[in-house]
Amino acid sequence: MKIGVVVSAGPYTHESSDTAYNFVKAAIAAGHEVPRVFFYHDGVNVGTRLSVPPQDDRNIQVNWSALAKEHGTDLVICIAAAQRRGLLDENEAQRQGKDADNIAEGFRISGLGQLIEMGIQTDRLVTFGE
């Protein structure tokens, strides 16, 4: 079965991105497909490569990036939510005249249409949020 996932709460402050990660791993292990995870609200902050959690803690971004690499899961960060919160890829940074970008490997920034499309194309949709 195809399962779409929404992460809508910020990492570390809220457990949602951890719960979502554990859920996606379990879904894939059970033979289901998670074609896309959509990050919205403060959930977009999962996708910054500049976070440096303590070494004895999990690294939420690194875990997601590894999952995307291993399973081809499309990690989409909502552009409108990302721009508000300072999440930029190279193109956006250039377009907005900013001096840096911060998006992590395996993530991409795109529009809310990707969320609706996920709802249309998957069999189930689960939201993890605050």
């Binding site: 919205y40 529009g111 809310l112 249409g113 969320l115 609706i116 499309e117 249309i120």
Partner: peptide
């Protein structure tokens, strides 16, 4: 989301 979704 509702506004964007309306186009679908």
């Amino acid at each position: 989301v509702v506004l964007i979704g309306a186009a679908f």
